[in-house]
Amino acid sequence: MTIVHDRAGTLVRTAGLRKSFRGVRAVRDVDLDLSGGVVGLLGPNGAGKTTLLRMLATVLAPDAGEVRLLGRDPRVPAERLEIRRRLGYLPQAPSLYGGFTVLEMVEYVAVLKEQTDAAARRRDAVRVLESVGLGDMQRRRIRTLSGGMRQRVALAAALLGRPELLVLDEPATGLDPEQRIELRSLLSETAQRGTVVLSTHNTSEVAALCQRVVVMRDGRIHFDGTPQGLRTTAEGRVWEAEERDPRAARSWMTAEGTYRHVGTPPAGATTVRPTLEDGYLFVTGGWR
C-alpha cells in the first residue's frame, strides 16, 4: 500500500476526524493527507463518504479532530473564508432554481463566490459552461433540463474561479458515457493545479481517473493508496469456477456464465488476476 506523504505540498490534511449524527458515528478517526491529483473516495452506502466530503467542503464542522485545507484551519472564520474562495463543491443532490436560465444560475453562484467584475464573471461562467458541454444551453431554463444536464450545471458552478480544491460528491451521476469521459479529462485538467476529491461507486472511474484511492467503510478508512495497490490487495484471492462456491466471501455470475469468487480460494482453485472491483470488494468485505 502506498500512501503519499508529501507534507510540503499537502492541500488537505485531517487528523482524528470524527462526526456523529444523533449517536450514529458517520466518520471515525479519519486521518488523511492529500496533495494534488485526483483522489477517489470509494465505499458502500452509509460508509461516511458524503459526511467526510462535507467536512472537506467546510460545510460541516467535525465533532473532533483537525482539518487543514489549503494550509488553513476552517474553524477560524477568516481562514474558512479564504478556503472558500479557493474551493469548489458539488453536493450529492444539488438543487437549483428552476426559474433561472443556466447562465443566470452559474452567474449567481459566481457572484456569491465574490466575482464582482461583471465582464470577468460572465467570461468565467461561459467558460465553465462550455467546459461541461453546456455552452449552447445557456439560455435554457433549469426546469427544462434533464437530470444529467442539471448535474452538469452544478458541476459548472463548482468549477467557477478555477478552484484549487474541488470536492465532488458523485459527480458522474446522471451522465452518459461520453459525458463521463469528458468529465474525466476536465477533472484531470483541474488536478494539474490542485486537488480533486471525488466520491463514487464506480470503480472503473477510479481506475481511469484517480492517482489515489481511499476506501471507507463504517466511517473508517480501510484502504488508502493507489488503484494498483487496491487491486493487489485481492491478489491470489479471486478465482472463477463453473459452480458457485459457498465458502467464498463474495461470488457472482459473470457474463460468460461462470462464477467469480472473492475470498480464500479452496485448494486446487485457479486464481485469476484481480480487478479494482475485486480489490474494493475484498477491502469492504473486511477480509484484509
Binding site: 460545510v59 473564508l81 474562495r85 458539488l90 453536493p91 444539488p94
Partner: peptide, 17 residues
C-alpha cells in the same frame, strides 16, 4: 433557499445570504 447545498461553501456566508 432550495440551492442551500450548492451554495453552502461560497465565501458569502449563509448568514449574509
Amino acid at each position: 433557499d432550495p440551492a442551500t447545498d450548492l451554495l453552502a461553501p461560497v465565501p458569502v456566508s449563509v448568514m449574509q445570504r
